[in-house]
Structures are given as C-alpha cells and as structure tokens.
Amino acid sequence: MKYALYLPLFILLFALGCDDDDVLSTQEVDFPISFRAEFGGTPLAIQSADYAYPTGADLKIQLFQYYVSDLELLPAGGGDPVQLSDIELIRWMSATEAATTTRTFQAPIGDYVGLRFGVGVSPDLNAQDPSNFAADFVLNENEFWGPSTRYVFAKIEANADLENDGTFDTPLTYHLGSDALYTTVTFNRTFTLDGTQDPDFTIVADVLKALADDTDSFDIANPDQQRIHGGNQAIATDLWNRLADQFSLETR
C-alpha cells in the first residue's frame, strides 16, 4: 500500500513525458528500404539468365552496381531532410544473390512527403581517397579509378550474343562516373513513419531501361559502344542519363 503514494508522481512524470515534443521528435524506428534489380521488368539474375535485347541480341549480365549517396527523407511541412545514409553501394555480382537486397536505416517517426538520393558518389565524398575510410567501407570496394578520375559511380557488365549463335562472345563493359554526372533522384510520396504501418519501399533499377527504351536502344553492336570507361563522355553521359532516369519507387 505504501507504494500507492507514489502513483500520482508516476502518472505526472508519464504525462510530462508525453507532452514533451522534443522527446517525441527524436524517437526513431527501423526503416528498411529494398533495392531490386530487374531486366525488362523481371528480377535480375546474374550470369544465369539469357535476356533478349531489343536489337535481337541476347545478354548475360555479369555485374550491375551503383552508388547511392545522401539517401534522405523529406519531412512534411518542410525543414531539413532526414539523412538515412551518406553512401551505399548497391551491387549484384553473383549468381547466388537475390535480385532484391534490403538495407535497414534509422528514421525519426513523423510525416514525410518524399524520398531522394543521389545516384553516384556525392562530390564531397568523391573528393576523398579510399585510404581515408575503413577498409570495409563501401568506398573501399575497389571502385576507385584514380587520383584524377575518382570513383566509378555505376557499372554494367555483360556478355552479348549478337549473332544468336548461342555464344556470348561480345563483352560489354560500362563504367560510369564523374562529379558532372552525379544526379539526384526524388520520389514524391506522402507517408508516415510510426513503427506500426510503415510503408515498404523498394527502389527498382532496370538494366534494360538503362540501355534501351521503346524508341532508342543503345547500340551494343557498335564496337565504340561496347566499352565505356569514363573517358568517352559523350556516350557515357547518354548512358548515364538513361541509367539515372529509370529508377522507380515501388510502395506497398
């Protein structure tokens, strides 16, 4: 019975806690975001699947990867964006990997109106050498071209069967990246994070859409367009724009 004397005090403290907006605003929840790779709308299978290319060739994809910088949530009512991550490397390089990979971030509960990120390595990080980071940091994944050319923002590697003879003997390697190519992608979505009915977000990237659309397919039969390693900026920019423009956000 003597503890009953403390009950009003507990109630008062609880009420004070609930009234404290600062406490509420810093509460965070786990917020998983998935990244799915596709080819022509189907989940990407590294090396193990044959994919039809619009020009009639078939492809086997060996590698698809891109950096995501400054992954942020846009608060409702304005204010500073909430950064979930400064840099992520999203990579598919093995036939043993699923087409969807999920990263879990910490996010404040609240109302939001969008999600945005940079495709590539943000200029401030792109200015730093790999040795500045921990050996297992994503900028130490051996994607550094060199002191002047910096990090490779994205890669697509494949072998093509141009003649439909069953041999995938035309290599395609597209390695892209420079500060000038860094692109911000924004998805406008209204959603609430409260830890109970949070949305499931999947950022989808389609390799085929990065190479071709309904009217214009990247000419993989042209030897000049089979290997782009940053130097050929005119072609690299075209390919980069296709890649950066094709991201979509799937919400469930």
Binding site: Q47, K60, Q62, L63, E157, N159, T167, F168, P171, L172
Partner: peptide, 11 residues
C-alpha cells in the same frame, strides 16, 4: 578462351 561466364573485361 571462350566460356559464357568469361569476364567481360577479358578480350
């Protein structure tokens, strides 16, 4: 030599 999984960086 050819194999369908030869690295695309080997040519």
């Amino acid at each position: 030599e050819y194999a369908e999984n030869k690295s695309a960086n080997v040519f």
